[in-house]
Design a protein around this nucleic acid. Structure first.
Lengths: 341, 341
DNA sequence: GAAAAAAATTATCGCGCGTAAAAAATTTAT
DNA sequence: ATAAATTTTTTACGCGCGATAATTTTTTTC
């Protein structure tokens, strides 16, 4: 407790008996001052609850410690989880992350990137909307601001990308499904926002052909991010029209599968891999809720930890090291066997 | 298109043939300059893509246009949805919202509030962790920064609160359940983070007693935010121990209900209100995923729109009008009848 | 103990803008 | 047309800190 309030760094330094530049140096890098000095400052910090004015700090600095994290749709717990993971890693690395969601809206994505520019961030971790993104705008942003793309790549944009190995995901689960019973049909939305969906469909077709099975792709109408609803409505229609060639359905992603499970339930189809079951259903992603569907969903788990860790590491290299190759890093998924297939 | 790059407001003003203070006035309130002047500036704005440096702007200003939005757990789509709603309303009101999640961690909540201070926000919309929150810290924050609490109130903290009328929620669904079949047992976690849970249990007990039924509360161990898991594990144990007095279970919230549904499925109990069903299950909140459970969950819908609208309105009044009474506003829920009960 | 190295100080600038007061230009009223 | 009221512009200063260079002080090394 001190008698007078500290208004700025000058007063704070004076209260300790140090010069302002020394204290300034400390805030930029505590290791850059002598140990005894550092301890004096840290002690005073607790006594006076002073903090540097962040606006004054960043105004005259070439690079701030701000990091932007942009995800396409935060109401999807998958993105919430990975954002949380990334956020924490940024904090641990001494940066100040700010989270944004495009809410599935390309215009909003553009506005977020625009707003981010004026924050002069050290770097940005961007999971773009995908197909719907304004490619030119994103590309320009990536050349202006050190950016690492994650989850969804953007062809032609020269920024490092960290994501999942979609073909491996699909191969893994197709192999499992073919091995254990009838080969799967593939259930997807016709116009997915995310480019990963396309890769998964292609991988499905190849995986089936390699094994000598004929691929059956069931595309249902729908775009946007209301995957459960699309899976539900489309699932009902597809079931009623008997569009599935076998008793096994592989969904393009878990949220679609959750909607499809609801459709199966509604039609009285028992889902599972045991004797009395009418249909097997599998997903891809290992969504946080997939453990609690009825029945629990068999799926392929995204490697959240690796993706977020590597994305942040790549950004740090890019920020601190200057140039970096715009390379792609993909992580493999793990088969999660549950009751649905 | 201009030949030289605009570096600051001085150059920008010069390019139009105006003085910097006039342009500065425009940015603070476009209506405060003559119409013809405003049009000249807006035209130049498009030609030169200049934007004021936000750090220089905020440094010497008593009040910024920043608004903080803090939710306890962003991986819960309920909070993601309401945050999105609030965020958009703040933008529409001309403010610059930033979203934070406490991730269920009291320490992190404290750090977020601390970091928020140095942003000198015009106001903050805070959904506190609840029971786990550092009450003293939150209270002090509320006296320093104009704050509106939402979702979860904090007894003793003198800030306006906007939330849901929990007793009304519970009464509504208890009335429905009692009217249509056997009166419900109440399924909850023993040590909920959120104070709403307690109010719901109390309301359940009263609602039962009023109708001449004996209340049965089934509390299962668990704390934190992994509600589905707690509902699942606790549900299995409670079912096996035959702790439910009737064939109807009212869950404290939808996420708990989702976990409980999974437990029912695992034990082969058919959930629903039709003939062959073994048990009825209902929730509270109308979680975004509740439409797609198996069977779809009967619940009470939160009035997202009203809560977010009124919370933002209250904050704006508080920010622009100065003082405001620390009053409480509650919104009623709507019964959502689906197949589960 | 002196020389070398490291750390802290002094001094001074600049960042880009907010803001207040005074001066000038414009609009409105008489 | 002239005076009064309003709007706009000019002038001047300050915000809190980063950054740098030139000294001075302290610490380390031999």
């Amino acid at each position: 407790m001190s008698t007078k309030t500290i208004r700025n760094m000058e007063e704070f330094a004076a209260a300790i008996g140090l010069s302002r530049p020394t204290v300034s140096k400390f805030f930029n890098d505590p290791e850059s001052v002598k140990t005894s000095t550092r301890e004096r400052i840290e002690a005073a910090l607790k006594a006076h609850d002073y903090r540097p004015n962040i606006y004054a700090m960043n105004q005259n600095r070439k690079l701030t410690k701000n990091v932007g994290i942009v995800v396409p749709y935060l109401a999807d717990p998958f993105f919430a989880e990975i954002a949380r993971n990334i956020e924490q890693r940024c904090i641990d690395a001494g940066y100040r992350p700010t989270l944004y969601s495009s809410h599935g809206d390309p215009a909003l994505e553009g506005e977020i990137l625009d707003g981010l520019r004026s924050l002069k961030p050290a770097g940005v971790l961007l999971a773009p909307l995908g197909r719907a993104s304004d490619r030119a705008a994103v590309e320009k942003f990536c050349t202006d601001v050190p950016t690492v793309l994650f989850d969804s790549s953007l062809p032609g944009v020269g920024a490092p990308f960290v994501g999942s190995d979609n073909p491996q995901f699909t191969n893994l689960i197709v192999e499992y499904l073919c091995r254990t019973a009838e080969p799967p049909s593939f259930f997807e939305m016709a116009t997915p926002a995310n480019p990963n969906a396309k890769k998964r469909r292609q991988a499905y077709v190849e995986a089936m052909e390699v094994r000598g099975f004929e691929p059956h792709v069931v595309s249902v109408p729908g775009s946007g991010w209301a995957f459960e609803e699309i899976g539900h409505e489309g699932g009902l229609a597809a079931l009623d029209a008997r569009r599935f060639a076998t008793d096994t359905v592989l969904c393009s992603n878990d949220r679609l599968a959750i909607g499809f499970l609801a459709a199966c339930y509604e039609r009285g189809l028992r889902v599972g891999r045991d004797e009395g079951a009418a249909i097997r259903v599998a997903g891809q992603d290992d969504h946080p809720f997939s453990r609690f569907t009825c029945p629990p969903l068999t799926t392929v788990a995204q490697d959240y930890a690796s993706v977020s860790r590597h994305a942040v590491q790549t950004l740090m290299d890019l920020v601190e090291g200057g140039e970096a190759p715009a390379e792609t890093t993909l992580f493999e998924g793990k088969l999660i066997m549950r009751a649905s297939a």
